[in-house]
């Protein structure tokens, strides 16, 4: 059974300017251990699709199953818990809580899960060293570079032991060397720990690193290539 299963997912935005079909009858499955990029031009529906998979937004039609759970039928409250325990999020920006240090940001999600303090501090430290930020554990986000912040975000996303990590344009705000470093880390976690990554991008260098590339256009999957 696949890790993520989308069945005929439809999302239409209605606005004064007219209806926009942001995700147009998409069906897909993602297996555990994949390192997959969703690509396509701006406005093709990448964010909308990832938000639906991440349980942040509800499709108008179709269903989404993650592991054994159909998230389309969940209440808002259940969805929050589901996100906390099953999905690691990395956003394009504003990932971190500004008043908390890198360490506290990473531990925060475990605190929400109710993990004991000693355990969460230990794990946060381990994760920060896995992403190469252990030297800056006590820095606040504004004392970190954009690349470092994104690496902390990856550590934070991993901290909850999620089923997969969802990253919407994680490198969009990064220069090419930071982009390379972040992808190295993500690829290593994928290879060593088997962590599933699903990320969107329109950066060719990032696309080149993916092992599966799903291309969207006007909300439709126009190609799906395993590299």
């Amino acid at each position: 059974m696949s890790l993520i299963q989308l069945n005929d997912v439809l999302k239409i935005y209605t606005s004064k300017a007219g209806d926009v079909t942001a995700v147009d009858h998409v069906s897909l499955s993602i297996e555990a251990g994949e390192f997959t990029a969703i690509v396509g031009p701006s406005g093709c529906g990448k964010t909308t699709l990832l938000n639906a998979i991440g349980g942040l937004d509800r499709p108008d039609k179709g269903s989404i199953r993650i592991g054994n759970s159909d998230i389309t039928g969940m209440s808002d409250k259940a969805l929050i818990d589901f996100r906390l325990n099953n999905i690691g999020f990395v956003f394009q920006a504003y990932n971190l809580i500004p008043v908390l240090t890198a360490m506290e940001n990473t531990a925060f999600i475990m605190e929400l899960q109710g993990v004991k303090k000693t355990e969460r501090l230990q794990r946060a430290m381990d994760l920060l060293s896995a992403v190469g930020i252990d030297g800056k554990a006590n820095n606040r986000p504004n004392q970190l570079s954009g690349g470092q912040q994104q690496r902390v975000a990856v550590a934070r996303a991993l901290a909850s032991h999620p089923q997969f990590i969802l990253a919407d344009e994680p490198t969009a705000n990064l220069d090419s060397s930071s982009t390379g470093q972040l992808l190295d880390i993500m690829a290593k976690l994928n290879a060593d720990e088997g962590m599933t990554f699903l990320f969107s991008t329109h950066d060719q260098r990032v696309i080149d690193r993916a092992r599966r590339v799903i291309t969207l256009e006007d909300g439709k999957v126009i190609s799906d290539v395993h590299v």
Partner: peptide, 12 residues
Amino acid sequence: ELGMLMAIGMNK
């Protein structure tokens, strides 16, 4: 930031 907190799983 508050949106992000809810997204990653901070409950109401």
